[in-house]
């Protein structure tokens, strides 16, 4: 794919991602409900929710939190755009982390103990996920000889069986990013009573709407990263990647409904263990083989 192609992909992402993310979230809730033998809300429910947040009176406990949440949304969009524009993979990781930092700052800026604990847990989750993410980048580099996503796709080296370890580690870690059980420690879409609403306890109205929209953007980007493992630069590779991403998302919903929440200690330890064994193991395998 040439530069124009990547540019178009990035623009398409910026426009389509919230729509696709919203539908994905709706399907997620419907499937979850069906798995619990309930009828479930309409597919467009996440959209109704966000529109409702916009209609509500705005209550802000600390005015700086709105700014932080807006930055969070902005940097999540930038992350996705960078990713789909075929830019540097490391840059994507760092921008995502920056966005995450703004979310944690927003939660810390209010006095509520619930959102503070939520923010703390969010940091633990980031600590658990980040190493895995970096190992993905390193293995991508070792396989394709470049950190640039457009070069990775163009190299023709993907999909590679050599990356199976880091792929599995990424699947493990993505559960944390998608905020699914057993890793929905900082905030969860179900079981709202836990920690009241965790990280988002103090957010309401438009601020909460921004958080939801960021999730939509983020989820689509994460699915994009799954698809990257299968991207060989052809349309077939794209379609296989898309199907793989959707299948994995379905498995995540299944896991979400089948598991209880872990304590943060277990989550952190297991994240590091998986990162170390599968991620680092994969890097060592590259060096040795």
């Amino acid at each position: 794919m040439n530069d124009i192609g990547w540019l178009i992909l990035a623009i398409v992402y910026a426009i389509i991602a919230p729509v696709a993310g919203c539908i994905l979230a709706g399907v997620d809730r419907k499937l979850s409900a069906r798995m619990q033998r309930r009828q479930g809300p309409p597919i467009m429910q996440p959209y109704y929710d966000v529109r409702k947040f916009m209609e509500k009176e705005q209550i802000t406990s600390n005015s700086v939190q709105d700014f932080y949440v807006a930055c969070y949304l902005l940097f999540i969009i930038i992350t996705g755009v960078l990713f789909f524009a075929g830019q540097d993979f490391l840059l994507v990781i760092f921008t995502l982390t920056l966005g995450e930092t703004f979310l944690v700052l927003a939660a810390y800026s209010s006095g509520s103990p619930f959102s503070q604990i939520g923010a703390q847990r969010e940091l633990y989750m980031a600590m658990a996920f980040e190493p895995i993410f970096l190992f993905v980048a390193i293995c991508m580099y070792l396989e394709t000889g470049s950190f640039s996503i457009s070069d990775m796709v163009g190299s023709g080296e993907l999909p590679s069986l050599m990356m199976i370890g880091v792929f599995l580690a990424f699947i493990y870690g993505i559960t944390m990013k998608l905020r699914k059980s057993p890793f929905d420690l900082s905030m969860s879409h179900h079981a709202h009573q836990d920690l009241v609403r965790g990280l988002t306890t103090e957010f309401s109205g438009k601020t909460l709407a921004m958080i939801e929209i960021s999730h939509w953007y983020e989820n689509i980007m994460l699915l994009g990263i799954i698809a990257l493992f299968f991207a060989d630069g052809t349309i077939t590779g794209f379609i296989i990647g898309l199907i793989a991403a959707l299948v994995i998302y379905f498995v995540e919903i299944l896991i979400d409904n089948g598991f209880a929440r872990m304590t943060w200690q277990t989550a952190l330890k297991s994240g590091w263990l998986v990162g170390l064994v599968l991620g680092l193991g994969n890097v060592i395998a590259y060096i040795l083989l």
């Binding site: 409900a33 479930g40 109704y48 009241v196 988002t200 306890t201 103090e202």
Partner: peptide, 21 residues
């Protein structure tokens, strides 16, 4: 519960007054 399933009306049981209607 599944028998009545309020969520089909988009209703969510939240614990947070700031997000409740």
């Amino acid at each position: 519960t599944p028998l009545y399933d309020l969520e089909r009306f988009g209703i969510i049981n939240t614990g947070d007054p700031k997000q409740a209607d």
